[in-house]
Simulated assay, not measured.
Amino acid sequence: MTKRFSYQTSGYQAMYGLHQYVQDCGLDHGLLELIRLRISQINGCAYCINMHAPLAQQNGISIVKIHLVAAWKEANVFSERELAALAWAEAVTALRDAEVPESVYRLAKVQFSENELSDLTLAVAEMNAWNRLMIASRTPPEIRQEESNDAIY
């Protein structure tokens, strides 16, 4: 796949400004990385999956959770707060029938304050924007040479 364009244009600073806000908003960085990974899986963004899996681990998310996040509904390793965040992230990413289901909102409302839910929604929107930028530009994942030899078979 050939890269189409560089994502690092003048608009990049605006995107990075949103990223900095989300990073500093007070939500747990591990939780943010967990939803970033899941959103990137949904959208099929190889660049972002490759970036956020190790960042999740660096921010305290276990390798088991990283491996199971694609099947989080069936896994029994996530906290109630993580489950609410993952459900919210999926609903906001998909926007089926142009809405977030009331049941998902009620679950999130129990785990997050109004400000936190607003910030979580911004985090979801930010990750979706990054995914779309990377996918549209066909930016390949950055894989270090030592990682390319790590076959798991």
Rank of each mutant, 00 (worst) to 15 (best):
I66K: 04
S118Q: 11
E90V: 09
L86Y: 00
S103H: 12
V69G: 02
S113R: 10
V64F: 06
A123V: 03
L83H: 08
K65R: 13
A89G: 06
L95N: 07
T121N: 12
L86W: 00
E116C: 06
P101S: 14
A91L: 09
E126A: 04
K109F: 08
S113N: 12
Q57Y: 01
I63C: 09
M51T: 15
D97H: 15
E102L: 12
P54Q: 05
K73V: 03
L107F: 09
L107C: 10
M51N: 13
D97F: 11
A71F: 08
N76E: 05
E80Q: 09
L86G: 00
K109D: 14
S103E: 13
F78C: 01
Q111S: 13
E82I: 00
V110S: 07
E114L: 15
W72C: 13
V92N: 00
L86M: 01
S79R: 05
N115C: 04
E74K: 06
E116G: 06
A123I: 05
S103Q: 14
A108T: 10
A71C: 10
F112Y: 10
A108H: 11
A123N: 03
F78P: 01
A91G: 09
W88H: 15
V64W: 04
S62H: 09
A125H: 12
R96Y: 12
V69P: 02
I66S: 03
R96D: 15
A123T: 05
V124F: 02
A87S: 13
N76M: 01
K109S: 14
P54G: 03
V104Y: 01
V124A: 07
A108V: 07
I66R: 05
Q57W: 01
K65G: 01
E82L: 02
A56E: 01
L55K: 15
E116M: 08
A94P: 00
I61K: 07
S62E: 08
A71V: 08
E80C: 00
Q111I: 05
H52C: 02
E114A: 15
A125Y: 10
S79C: 05
E90P: 09
A89V: 04
E80R: 07
V92E: 00
T93M: 14
L83Q: 11
V104L: 03
F78Y: 07
T121Q: 12
A89I: 04
G60R: 13
V64H: 10
L86S: 00
D119R: 08
M127Y: 03
W88D: 14
A123K: 04
V104T: 04
S103D: 11
Q58H: 15
V100R: 12
A123W: 02
A91H: 10
A123P: 02
A91T: 11
V69M: 05
L122Y: 14
A53K: 09
F78S: 02
I61S: 03
A53N: 05
E82C: 01
L86Q: 00
R81W: 00
Y105P: 14
E82G: 01
L68R: 10
D97T: 12
L95C: 05
S62P: 07
A94Q: 15
V77K: 06
A56Y: 03
L55S: 11
F78M: 02
A71D: 09
D97R: 14
E80V: 04
I63T: 15
L83M: 09
V92S: 00
K109V: 09
P101L: 14
V69D: 03
P54M: 08
L107G: 09
